[in-house]
């Protein structure tokens, strides 16, 4: 059984927000705090907090959040103020906009990347390579 928690807006209460593997949500999800999806979500997500889409999870929604990590499947356009991480094994279909975008080896992306970055010197930019190497400006 779940322990009764205080309904204060503590970090612990926020961190606990999750849609379990046996759950399905259809509609609009909004709010403050982090959310983890293990199950299915169809609709729209607007979150002041980070969204984690776990391995095996399936999300069909446009996502607006502070940060996003995808290990499962995401179909929808993404607009994130902070970092987007597409993990190995993840599948993302849609346009992705974020302050920084990391696509791990084995992660799939079908869509456009929209992120401000500086090209490394070798590619004709004046930038400082290194940190930008994981950002793929490519369009697939």
């Amino acid at each position: 059984m779940a322990q009764p928690r205080s309904s204060s807006s503590s970090a612990a209460a926020h961190a606990a927000a999750a849609i379990g593997p046996g759950s399905r949500v259809r509609g609009r999800v909004t709010g403050d705090g982090d959310l983890t999806v293990h199950g299915r979500l169809e609709g729209e997500v607007q979150l002041r907090g980070s969204l984690f889409i776990d391995e095996g999870a399936h999300v069909e929604a446009n996502v607006d959040a502070d940060a996003l990590r995808v290990g499962g499947t995401l179909e929808g356009n993404v607009s994130v103020a902070g970092d987007v991480t597409i993990l190995s094994g993840a599948r993302v279909r849609g346009d992705v906009r974020g302050a920084s975008i990391a696509l791990h080896e084995g992660g799939e992306l079908d869509g456009r990347l929209d992120s401000e970055f500086t090209l490394p010197r070798e590619l004709g930019g004046g930038g400082e390579g290194g940190d930008d190497n994981h950002k793929k400006p490519a369009r697939r």
Binding site: S7, S9, R28, G49
Partner: peptide
């Protein structure tokens, strides 16, 4: 606890 709709979260739908 499998599904927790956290204190700051609102779901409009099903």
């Amino acid at each position: 606890a499998s599904t927790v709709i956290g204190a700051g979260i609102t779901i409009e739908g099903e």
